[in-house]
Write a protein that binds this DNA or RNA. Structure first.
Lengths: 139, 139
DNA sequence: TTGATACCCTACTTATTCGATAGTATTTAT
DNA sequence: ATAAATACTATCGAATAAGTAGGGTATCAA
């Protein structure tokens, strides 16, 4: 299960993607429309901005807008930003490898092969689902 | 990422599967061999027993043994037992559906379709990986 | 130039979960 | 009887989740 923060981020990105290249949206409006606590949403949008997905305009009449193309933002990107690794074990993570605390001889680890397969399948589907995927109204 | 509890469970199951139909193993021996805190492992084995995967024998010379066939225990089973839903959102969970707190009109939810797809792909690979999969030494 | 609007940033809070540990009870072979 | 092993309950400290609080800063309109 993903965190609410991550879910809120995706919902906000979808809302912003619906206005791609059509100016900015207010945090308050997204908050109301998507039923996300405003102060919490502020933090989320800021993180998305720092990660390069969004741009913003400050002051009166300001707001957030999509900076990257919605076709180029994947669920994998957002999941990694807010919830961390896609892999189920640190030792099979593609981008953030770490050895497991309890692993004494990684070469002899019986888990790696299968969990690497699981990670790869999961990663592929998450990379192939973009913000744009949520917008296209086809079956 | 899966919890350590879940990882330990899978490691213990693999160890027990290596002795399938060859009597029981002591918690203490699995603990040492797999580098899992013994008292923590006790809880885990007990849960696996209650879930029907293991059997046990009490008293002197007792221990745990595989009850189900290792080919019939999937990573999905163990993940669901210790870490919960495979689905990233409660509303697309196959076995434990719940509506999302923030969702006002589920019929109009823009997230469901894509996250249902992600859940299904993830589920399939996890269901197709069994405890036996970790034992077969092929590439 | 001042006030309203809106983003920017940090710190705090509260509840829950994670990863264990402790201690007792019970069963069983010898 | 007693030592070895599981069975079960309770507790604990640290981390994380999900928000709240309270400002600061930029912008624009009147």
């Amino acid at each position: 299960m993903m965190s609410k923060k991550c879910k809120y981020a995706i919902k906000a990105l979808i809302a912003l993607a619906e206005h791609y290249e059509q100016g900015n949206l207010f945090t308050a409006d997204i908050s109301k429309a998507q039923n996300i606590p405003k102060k919490f949403l502020e933090q989320i949008l800021l993180e998305l901005k720092h990660a390069g997905f969004l741009g913003s305009k400050q002051g009166y009449g300001g707001g957030y807008y999509m900076k990257k193309n919605p076709t180029e933002i994947t669920v994998a990107d957002i999941y990694r930003l807010f919830d961390g690794n896609i892999a189920l074990l640190p030792c099979v993570s593609l981008l953030r490898y770490e050895s497991c605390d309890d692993c004494q001889d990684e070469a002899a680890c019986t888990l790696k092969r299968e969990f690497a397969k699981i990670r790869e399948q999961t990663r592929l589907i998450m990379v192939n689902t973009t913000i744009q995927s949520f917008l296209t109204h086809e079956k």
